[in-house]
């Protein structure tokens, strides 16, 4: 699929995506840095796009002590390690339909790194097209990156804000599986309950499993019309809505945040990263079951 194909899909910000073709032609482009971010930590070491560095969501993006993302200093260190400056265009890609790639992309936006794009189709499409993979781990000269303090206000929602959102009857999107949404599945059978104490969903939330935004054959994003048919036709959302998306820990919902914000051009979408592992364990918050 070519760049012109992306341009023809009717996205609000088509420039946010690059095609596999474009990336293959730009592997040596000194102004870009390719970042692989996966759910499966074995994938990058087993082979990756030449020149790509790995950003691991557990070790690189999360604070290792408190449940939170890395702070300004941590982000500056990460940026230095992968050799980027604010002017470097970071191209994110990964497994699971770019699920973790959009999560890393979202964290980078908390620090205002707007020179960022996502590889349409991610790792799946690159592999399916038989494009080159290497096990060689590149190193880049460390850079100095002066990052602003993390700004959680614009694209991140916290539990008290979610509660006010619910009380104001504003739209929420639950991007987990239907069984998680209904509360039918909460934790693994025969294993201690690690997920949440209660099942169900945040009152008023609409169920749109995150991967519906994807063409399963090659991992590319659906065209804008098809996305609108889901989020607007089926669920009644509008681009002017104040929307909060959530899942279990905020990774799947960063994918939906990306789709609504960049592909459909919604102005106010926040990702509630506390998600069900917080809400399903909170004392005193309402939970809805169908």
């Amino acid at each position: 699929m070519s760049a012109s194909d992306i341009a023809s899909r009717g996205y609000a910000k088509p420039e946010i995506l690059v095609s596999t073709e474009w990336l293959a032609d730009n592997l040596k482009n000194p102004n870009i840095r390719i970042v692989e971010s996966n759910e499966d930590p074995l994938l990058y070491p087993s082979g990756h796009i030449p020149g790509a560095v790995e950003v691991d969501w557990t070790t690189d993006l999360n604070d290792q002590v408190r449940r939170d993302y890395l702070g300004r200093e941590g982000f500056e260190k990460l940026a230095a390690r992968i050799g980027i400056t604010p002017d470097t265009t970071v191209i994110f890609y990964g497994d699971k339909n770019n699920w973790w790639a959009t999560y890393a992309f979202w964290v980078f936006q908390l620090f205002g790194h707007t020179n960022a794009k996502v590889l349409d189709g991610g790792r799946l499409k690159w592999e399916k097209e038989g494009r080159e993979l290497t096990r060689e781990v590149p190193t880049y000269p460390a850079t100095t990156y002066s990052a602003p303090e993390r700004n959680d206000k614009r694209i991140r929602a916290f539990r008290d804000e979610v509660l006010r959102h619910v009380e104001a009857r504003l739209p929420l999107v639950d991007v987990r599986s239907p069984a998680e949404y209904t509360g039918e599945k909460l934790h693994m059978d025969g294993y201690p309950n690690e997920g949440a104490l209660r099942g169900g969903h945040i009152p008023g939330a609409q169920s749109v499993p995150w991967a519906r935004a994807i063409n399963p054959e090659n991992g590319t994003f659906l065209a804008a019309d098809a996305l609108r048919a889901i989020y607007e036709g089926e669920k009644g959302l509008k681009p002017s809505d104040d929307v909060i998306a959530y899942c279990r820990i905020g990774e799947r919902s960063s994918h939906t945040w990306f789709v609504l914000s960049y592909l459909l051009g919604y102005q106010k979408v926040r990702n509630y990263d506390g998600s069900w592992t917080e809400w399903g364990n909170l004392v005193g918050v309402p939970i809805e079951k169908p």
């Binding site: 759910e39 930590p41 557990t58 070790t59 693994m188 294993y191 690690e194 997920g195 820990i249 592992t277």
Partner: peptide, 16 residues
């Protein structure tokens, strides 16, 4: 031990 909760659950699911 650094394996994520979700990943760990999925793999434990195979054992279970």
């Amino acid at each position: 031990r650094e394996i994520s909760m979700g990943k760990g659950q999925g793999l434990m699911g195979i054992v279970m």
